[in-house]
Computed example of a mutant assay.
Amino acid sequence: MSSATRDVLKSALMTPIWAAALLTGAKSFVDNPLIGSPRLNRAGLHAGRVRLAHALAAQRRRKLQHRLTASDREAFERQGFIVREQALPAQAFARLREEVLGQAFPSREMLQGDAVTRRIAINPDFLQQAPVTRAFLQGPLWNGLADYVGSYRQTPMAYVQTILSHVHGHPEADPQLQFHADAFHPTVKAWLFLEDVADEDGPFCYVPGSHRLTPQRLAWEQACSEQVGQLDRLSSRGSLRASPEARAAMGLPEPVRLAVPANTLIVADTFGFHARGAASRPSRRVELWGYGRRNPFLPWAGLDPGSLPWIAPRRIDGYWRWLSFCEQRLHRPIAWRDVGLQYAGDSRSSFG
């Protein structure tokens, strides 16, 4: 069988799967030839998916608006993120810090540019040893804000995350410093900072109002979808990078750098352009970090199987087992290095 014949057969077999993926959160222009088709996108495929996803998200948010205060809702509509300082009572926050920082947990680390990200899975074993953390992550503040911003009742995947800057490598190679959207539809990420984050430490940055689907933003999305061959690697996989010139053309303001004190909760729609700020000194950020992303084309706000109580805290364990299988059995290089038991607050890294 010739290679041309094999390609035809593969296309015939895969086309129904590629077509079905159009009604999911699949976003990569290079992994799905329908999503990445300049011809289909000139006809409006990508822009149509974006419009429909945002219309459904607005509908779901109306069903969830009772989960947060009017001031939080107004802040989100205006800027695309919500900031809550003193998220926990002082005594509860002190106990949470002791739970998170006082013992070592199984960890993985990844190097991007000169920054190392360490993650500790918040799984059943972790939650059993951290009752205050468990109460917060299962409580109304974390979940109410995440539900509304993410437009779904869902349990976010949660980690203890440590970011070490100026560790090793080249800062210009860090893709997290580039302003980007995580997907073509609303998604949610949340951070509870366990230590003060100064401007020099590389704070979370966001372009206010960039979560809104304006005509200018939609035109930019359309243009990107028609020029897949000219996109950088991460943009071509659906996480579009937006240059300062592109943001200005969309009428967007300058980004804000959210240097915040410890015990601050930030919840953001990561369809909006965001980045990690460049750190001007060796520094460490430690936070509870969570994200939620569901099929953007579902009309209902709940019914998430992944949020069932016996499934939700075990999802990361399953993902980590898959990473280990890929590395050990399939001999595939993976970005997340298993570094064994680590303290979240340790400023040393396996990368040097």
Rank of each mutant, 00 (worst) to 15 (best):
S71T: 08
L265T: 13
F126N: 15
Y148R: 10
R321F: 03
R237S: 01
I35D: 00
S165C: 01
S107E: 11
P33M: 08
P33E: 11
F184H: 14
P333L: 08
W220L: 03
R294P: 06
R314K: 08
L298Q: 04
Q342M: 10
W300K: 09
A248Q: 15
R212I: 01
S349G: 04
R337F: 05
G272T: 15
L341I: 02
W289S: 15
R337W: 03
G202E: 00
G318C: 05
L330W: 12
D232I: 06
S324E: 07
E200S: 13
Q342V: 00
P124E: 06
D7L: 15
E195K: 15
Q154G: 06
R241P: 00
P299W: 04
A87W: 11
A130V: 13
I82C: 07
E200C: 05
I266S: 12
L164E: 09
Y152M: 03
Q79R: 11
E85P: 14
R284W: 10
N123L: 03
A135F: 00
G144R: 09
H166K: 13
R285Q: 12
G48T: 13
P261Y: 15
L13E: 09
R237N: 13
V116N: 07
W320F: 05
Q154I: 14
V116W: 13
E245Y: 05
A20M: 07
T24L: 06
E254M: 02
V100N: 11
I17V: 15
R247T: 05
H211K: 13
N263S: 08
P203Y: 11
I163K: 12
R233T: 06
P131A: 02
G277C: 09
H66R: 01
R134I: 08
L298D: 02
A249I: 04
R294S: 11
A249Y: 02
E245P: 04
F297L: 11
V267D: 01
G139L: 06
F105S: 14
R78D: 09
V116K: 01
Q230Y: 10
S280M: 02
D31L: 12
D31K: 12
Y159K: 11
W320Y: 13
D72W: 02
L192S: 09
F184Q: 03
Q59K: 08
P203E: 00
F136P: 07
M14W: 07
G80E: 05
A55V: 05
R49K: 14
P282D: 07
S3F: 05
A219L: 11
T24D: 13
S71L: 12
F297C: 03
W310F: 12
S280G: 14
A130L: 05
G44W: 12
